[in-house]
Simulated scan of single mutants.
Amino acid sequence: MKALGIILIVIGIAMIIIREVNFTTEKEVADLGPIELNKKEQKRVAWPTYAGIGVAACGVVILVAAMRKTT
């Protein structure tokens, strides 16, 4: 459980610092024998700051609960 709490804290901090991720996908439009037509699309995944804070807070709660359970 401690590892899960630490991982969630790190992911939450990363979500606060990095607010969006951009990536490109390639989609096949048509395949006409030896000729192939592809289209590249740029996509963006964004999340609000409070989502990162929430994930980090859940990690802290799990970490504290794991610490109390072992003592």
Rank of each mutant, 00 (worst) to 15 (best):
67 M>W: 09
65 A>Y: 11
46 A>S: 13
68 R>D: 10
51 A>C: 12
59 G>N: 05
51 A>H: 05
1 M>D: 14
11 I>D: 11
36 E>P: 00
62 I>M: 11
50 Y>T: 10
68 R>H: 09
63 L>F: 13
67 M>H: 05
63 L>N: 02
25 T>E: 10
9 I>K: 04
48 P>K: 06
48 P>R: 09
14 A>E: 13
68 R>T: 14
8 L>S: 12
23 F>E: 08
47 W>Q: 11
1 M>V: 07
30 A>T: 14
18 I>A: 04
13 I>D: 07
33 G>A: 03
37 L>I: 00
35 I>S: 00
70 T>W: 10
40 K>W: 03
1 M>R: 06
49 T>M: 12
49 T>H: 08
57 A>T: 10
2 K>M: 13
26 E>K: 03
29 V>I: 13
55 V>H: 08
39 K>P: 02
9 I>N: 06
12 G>L: 05
4 L>N: 01
19 R>A: 09
3 A>S: 11
16 I>S: 05
6 I>S: 10
31 D>C: 02
63 L>I: 08
70 T>R: 13
31 D>K: 02
48 P>I: 02
47 W>A: 12
14 A>L: 15
66 A>E: 15
9 I>V: 13
35 I>H: 00
55 V>A: 12
7 I>P: 04
5 G>W: 11
51 A>I: 13
18 I>Y: 11
5 G>T: 10
55 V>E: 10
18 I>Q: 05
43 K>V: 08
46 A>D: 07
63 L>K: 02
42 Q>F: 01
47 W>I: 09
11 I>E: 08
70 T>K: 14
41 E>H: 05
17 I>N: 13
22 N>P: 06
19 R>I: 04
61 V>M: 03
54 G>P: 10
45 V>M: 02
50 Y>D: 07
18 I>T: 09
21 V>R: 07
29 V>P: 02
64 V>R: 09
14 A>T: 14
68 R>Y: 10
54 G>N: 06
1 M>P: 15
14 A>W: 15
31 D>P: 01
